[in-house]
């Protein structure tokens, strides 16, 4: 009964707008597919994520020294080496390489990308969300999963090495989903999905970093031009 009550409490929290702890996270994405022709294709990428009340800041981890993406006069490092607009002849907006700032304003999500190289903030109207890979859900961005879907997944006996984290799993029609959910911090530590025949498999692994950085990078945009997604369409 006690367990049941705590699960309800945890799931209620998961369903609220921003109930989880402030966290600095590293998010590693992995996918694998085996084609009918016997070819295995794998893809990996990572992101850093700052999760705060009413704010989610996500930035792709990029390889250092991306010469083809770097502006010639750019002496900065890491993320800033990658330009969202390359060259002067034609403008581009590559949201994948720009930090994404999602905020909650009076219950409505507001999405923008911050281009430090070009000193501009690019706002994304709701009608353009799909063009930048955002499904419009604050909760999906904040929790990296659908809390309602999580509710429907029973806790299983699969062992967890993380205190306070439990596996929830579901299997149907040869497909499976598994989530290692940290009840205390309100965050998934592992999200897996695939099929029993092992033709495809997806895994998202979250690492909770020690401490919470005080920086709020979305405030560091003073003097930046305000632009919109449509400004980059010619």
């Amino acid at each position: 009964m006690k367990l049941h009550l705590s699960l309800i409490a945890a799931l209620c929290l998961a369903g609220s707008a921003h109930a989880g702890a402030d966290l600095d996270l590293k998010v590693a994405h992995y996918s694998r597919i085996v084609t009918p022709e016997g070819v295995t294709r794998e893809a990996r990428f990572s992101e850093t994520m700052l999760r705060r009340a009413n704010h989610v800041w996500t930035a792709r981890v990029l390889p250092p020294g991306q010469a083809s993406h770097r502006h010639e006069n750019d002496g900065s490092s890491g993320m800033k080496k990658v330009a969202a607009r390359q060259g002067t002849a034609h403008k581009h907006f590559n949201h994948v390489v720009l930090p994404r700032h999602l905020s909650l304003d009076n219950g409505q999500p507001r999405l923008e990308f911050v281009d430090a190289q070009e000193k501009q903030v690019i706002a994304i109207p709701a009608g353009e969300y799909d063009n930048v890979g955002f499904d419009g859900s604050w909760e999906h961005a904040y929790y990296l999963l659908d809390p309602k879907r999580l509710k429907a997944m029973p806790v299983t006996a699969r062992a967890s090495a993380v205190p306070g984290a439990r596996w929830r799993e579901r299997e149907q029609n040869g497909l499976f989903e598994r989530v290692l959910w940290d009840d205390r911090r309100e965050v998934p530590l592992v999200i897996e999905s695939g099929d029993k025949a092992a033709t495809f498999y997806n895994r998202v692994e979250l690492t909770v970093m020690k401490g919470v950085t005080p920086e709020r990078p979305w405030l560091d945009t003073k003097g930046y031009a305000r632009r919109e997604y449509a400004d980059f369409l010619d």
Binding site: H92, H95, V96, D130
Partner: peptide, 13 residues
């Protein structure tokens, strides 16, 4: 309404 068709070469736009 919001489905984005798939593409051959990957470009940002």
């Amino acid at each position: 309404d919001n489905y984005l068709q798939e593409t051959g070469v990957r470009l940002s736009s």
